[in-house]
């Protein structure tokens, strides 16, 4: 950090981005405890490095990319420990009558598809932007989204 920029602090950073990172991490890890670990890792990494951000969008994209990286590492470690993927996420603790069928269907997708779906449909990023965040080609993201839609269509049709 330089140029007299205001140092980043945990409180405001948490206030602004905790929900976003936690939701993304949960989609990737399917585990609340792991998602919290990712959240902590991303924030601490950001606070340690104090990167300079051009604007809010830049900051958000940085954090998302860091969350993807962090969850990649965590998933790899989890795989080493358990020899399999993370334990499945329990159902969302619904406090109202909202139907979580769609969310559950998304969580049933392979990890790469879930990430692409989440960033595209929830965070509203373009295929190109997602490609940059995931360090993959836009055509691969498109392909993931296409396959995810196909799978979701099938699952949701069966549920209906």
């Amino acid at each position: 950090m330089g140029n007299g920029a205001v140092p980043l602090e945990l409180g405001p950073l948490y206030e602004a981005y905790a929900d976003m990172i936690y939701r993304l991490a949960l989609v990737r890890t399917k585990n609340r405890s792991d998602a919290e670990d990712v959240l902590q890792d991303v924030f601490f990494r950001c606070l340690r490095r104090q990167p300079e951000f051009r604007d809010q969008e830049h900051q958000k994209a940085w954090l998302i990319t860091a969350a993807i990286r962090s969850s990649n590492s965590l998933l790899t470690r989890a795989d080493r420990r358990h020899g399999a993927g993370a334990e499945p996420l329990e159902t969302l603790s619904t406090q109202d009558d909202t139907d979580d069928t769609v969310y559950t269907a998304v969580m049933g997708l392979p990890e790469k598809y879930r990430t692409a779906v989440h960033l595209f449909y929830y965070e509203g990023y373009s295929v190109e932007e997602i490609g940059r965040m995931m360090d993959t080609k836009p055509s691969t993201v498109k392909s993931h989204l296409h396959r995810a839609r196909e799978a979701l269509r099938k699952v949701l049709k069966e549920d209906a």
Partner: peptide, 15 residues
């Protein structure tokens, strides 16, 4: 799909 997925996500918060 987008609407329902968004609604579900909006209800998710860290502890």
């Amino acid at each position: 799909f987008e609407k329902e997925y968004t609604q579900s996500n909006d209800r998710i918060h860290p502890r």
